[in-house]
Nucleic acid binder design. Structure first.
Length: 423
RNA sequence: GUGGUCGUAGCUCAGCUGGUAGAGCACUCGGUUGUGGUCCGAGAUGUCGCGGGUUCGAGCCCCGUCGAUCACCCCA
């Protein structure tokens, strides 16, 4: 019989590493909650047209990376390649854009892009993102960036940097693009590169080939075409970031992969990940909501790649908490039913309790206790059941003390309180 | 989607110019009657990714395929 394999390019997590994944995801979510963002849980598939219009027809994501299929009713469905379009759709559909503003939400889940897989680049990957809809104040840009930066700092990441730029408003872009196209027209590229330039000339700045880069070194810079309003907003963002001691570098060649960005755009780049160095990115999308049929509201958000952040934490050798640190491990000696009853009683009290099953010898049971990582253990034999006294052994020190079985829960709760809670 | 590298026990890997597989760690049991982590002893474990070909004979050679990985494209 042939063994089943996971589909090509998906990321999977299982113990012990899944504990690290969970920790990272929770850290980001907690940071978002700290800033007042609330959960928005959305479908992983949407009408194909939503992404085509929302993300942009010219993007690679839409042109060749979407998982699109027809459902049984003949509708064209696409597995979500990013989170913002869905949030916009739900916000409009449920009239949140006509209610109290701003709408501040976070999401967490799987996303899909049919790319050639690589370390840190998967066909199913995980993002946590936030969106703040209905405020055009540049300070909200900074709030959004701060949520991500705080999460990274709490994780202990060091070797990353925040790059920011401004893509300006519609007038900025129109002026700039005509200048850039004029400049590119004077250059001689290969056919494929010409085609890319045709679709979106900004994409050329993303090219890694040195010959292309050197030619583009003298190209006009978008930053020079910012309207006074856009420039003022960008200055406000930079000043505010400085005031909060959030380090950043201005990258006036930054290219975002999605078409909806306007104004502030940013990217978090980690140095230890090879080619897939972006661990998160986002920006302002002031035209998107209206384009999808909603109110004319501005918005800003980010998406952080949980898979890549995990790789970044590992690259930096950060220690991450393991999941299930047990408070107590019970080794039964022919007393398994009673042991299970005691374990359940303690679990009802909120203690994390493990036990060995399957009639193991004492030595095997103690080995299991050791490997479980539990802080304490007890051996439960006929003697203990008869006397109601157990020897509570602290695994680390090896010392044990006699405790009355009926008081075990209270005793353990008192002991473990010193270690803080388990969350 | 394009190109390079790789695919041997649960994990990390070794396997000489082709002669039907090994190490370390992990695992199980034991080292005299009920206390783990060190040490000692014993034991189990693989269709050598999958399919085909060359050969008397292939883990080692050839082709295909699946997957991983690295770079490009692009991006979280």
């Amino acid at each position: 019989m042939t063994k089943f394999q996971a589909p090509k390019g998906v990321s999977e997590y299982f113990p012990p590493r899944s504990n690290h994944f969970e920790y990272i995801r929770n850290t980001i979510i907690e940071s978002a909650k700290t800033s007042g963002y609330e959960l928005m849980e959305l479908p992983v598939f949407e009408d194909t047209e939503l992404f085509a219009r929302g993300v942009g027809e010219s993007t690679d994501v839409v042109r060749k990376e979407m998982y699109t299929f027809e459902d049984r009713g003949g509708r064209s469905i696409t597995l979500r390649p990013e989170g913002t379009a869905g949030v916009m759709r739900a916000t409009i559909e449920h009239n949140l854009d006509r209610g109290q503003l701003p709408v501040k939400v976070f999401y967490s889940g799987a996303f899909f892009r049919a790319e050639r897989p690589q370390a840190g680049r998967y066909r199913q990957f995980y993002q946590v993102g936030i969106e703040a809809i209905g405020l055009s104040d540049p300070l909200i840009d900074v709030e959004v960036i701060a949520v991500a930066d705080r999460a990274f700092r709490q994780l202990g990441l060091k070797n990353y940097r925040l790059e920011i730029t401004s893509l300006g408003d519609a007038i900025t872009r129109a002026n700039y693009l005509s200048q850039l196209r004029a400049y590119i027209a004077t250059l001689d590229f290969d056919e494929e590169t010409k085609a890319r330039a045709e679709i979106n000339p900004l994409r050329l700045f993303d090219d890694k080939r040195p010959e292309i880069r050197s030619v583009l070194a003298t190209a006009p810079i978008l930053m020079d075409y910012l309207t006074p309003e856009s420039a003022a907003d960008f200055d406000a963002v930079k000043n505010s970031l400085e005031a909060l001691n959030i380090n950043f570098v201005v990258n006036n060649r930054m290219v975002r992969g999605l078409d909806y960005y306007t104004g502030t755009a940013f990217e978090f780049v980690h140095e230890g990940l090879g080619a897939q160095s972006g661990i998160g990115g986002g920006g302002r999308y002031d035209g998107l909501m209206a384009q999808l049929g909603g109110a004319s509201l501005s918005g800003i958000g980010f998406g952080l790649g949980v898979d890549r952040i995990l790789l970044a934490c590992e690259a930096e050798g950060l220690s991450m908490p393991e999941g299930s640190e047990l408070d107590l491990f019970i080794v039964p000696l022919g007393t398994a039913p009673a042991a299970l009853a005691i374990a359940e009683e303690l679990r009802e009290r909120g203690l994390r309790v493990g036990m060995s099953y399957g009639d193991r010898a004492l030595k095997g049971g103690m080995k299991a206790a050791d490997k479980s990582g539990a802080r304490y253990s007890i051996v439960l034999g006929a003697d203990e059941l008869a006397s109601g006294e157990v020897a509570l052994k602290a695994m680390k020190s090896g010392e044990s003390q006699s405790v009355t079985l009926s008081l075990l829960a209270n005793h353990l709760i008192g002991l473990t309180a010193d270690f803080g809670d388990h969350s």
